[in-house]
């Protein structure tokens, strides 16, 4: 029904335009004709009204030059944009028919009737060098309830696309963030382990080697093995089966502060003398050796922290 109506309207418009045109134009001078129509007589509120103005004449396209097309005067519509196109065809008589088409796009404002009150087209007849104008008639369009259609689908599609992009972006961001956090955690864990080695041995020193009491020779043996155990754990190797000389040689090739290394040598030398040379050890000597180990552990901890800060 809609198609029939459109066809009818189309014919009316042609006739009306031709009549109007004829009334405003001298065809003997110029056989230009104007046709105006809308794509749909009734348009949903959420759709566009497409208004077409078509000029056609016999002869070359350059015969008429459109100098000005004023925006149509409209009611209940807002101009959204316009476009134009040219076309030249040859009819069955072998004559050239040139067509210039101008399309206007309107957005309905509210439901009810909307009107395109006409449009004035100014043109120049290049053959006769005359300026002329044509005025299209008024066309009404019924604005009906909004319907779900392709435009809303498009919007929905855009929204979906945007959401997908956002989700992917978020995923990438989260992945990067996760990896970064993972690395940070691993580093933190490593730092904790390092820190734990020094802290652990400081704790072991306090827990297992008691300053009070006697049998300092035996305690010194334990103290020395605690220090060797610390270096074994720190450098992830077994040093317990090496002699003092080999242990010192091993430590020398590590990045160790010279002061700490000197203290280790001092301690190991004294310890060897007491443990293997039959030297006696009194309470004061033992306290000094104990302090040396504590100092080495503390300094190693600080040394580590400084290196990490760097």
């Amino acid at each position: 029904m809609n198609k029939q109506f459109l066809f009818g309207l189309f014919l009316c418009l042609i006739l009306s335009s031709s009549i109007f045109s004829q009334s405003n134009q001298d065809t003997s001078v110029s056989d230009i004709s104007l046709l105006t129509y809308v794509e749909n007589e009734s348009v949903a509120l959420n759709r566009e009204v497409v208004y077409i103005v078509q000029l056609s004449w016999q002869g070359e396209l350059g015969r008429y030059k459109i100098s000005d097309v004023l925006d149509p005067d409209v009611t209940n519509l807002i101009v959204r944009g316009s476009g134009s196109s040219n076309k030249v065809i040859t009819n069955s008589d072998g004559k050239e028919i040139s067509t210039k088409r101008i399309t206007f796009y309107f957005r309905p404002v509210e439901m009810g009737m909307a009107y395109i009150n006409g449009v004035t087209i100014r043109y120049k007849d290049t053959l006769l060098d005359q300026n002329e104008s044509l005025l299209a008639g008024r066309i009404s369009v019924k604005i009906i309830d909004p319907i779900p259609g392709s435009s809303s689908n498009n919007i929905l599609q855009y929204v979906v696309y945007v959401i997908i992009i956002l989700v992917i972006g978020l995923g990438v961001y989260l992945f990067v963030l996760y990896n970064k956090r993972k690395k940070e955690n691993a580093l933190e864990e490593l730092e904790n382990i390092k820190e734990t080695t020094e802290k652990k041995y400081l704790r072991l020193l306090k827990e297992t080697i008691h300053l009070a009491g006697n049998n300092y020779k035996e305690k010194l043996h334990d103290l020395t093995h605690l220090l060797i155990g610390f270096f074994s754990e720190k450098y992830s190797t077994s040093l317990s089966n090496l002699s003092s000389k080999d242990i010192l040689k091993y430590i020398e090739y590590r990045e160790i502060e010279p002061k700490i290394y000197a203290k280790i040598i001092e301690f190991m030398t004294k310890s060897d003398l007491i443990r293997f040379a039959g030297n006696t050890v009194n309470e004061t000597d033992f306290h000094q050796l104990y302090d040396s180990v504590e100092w080495i552990l503390e300094k190693s901890k600080n040394d580590n922290s400084e290196k990490e800060d760097e």
Binding site: S243, S244, K245, D246, D272, L273, F276, A277, G278
Partner: peptide, 10 residues
Amino acid sequence: RGYVTPEDVR
């Protein structure tokens, strides 16, 4: 050296 250390043994 007047005493033996594990180094000597090794």
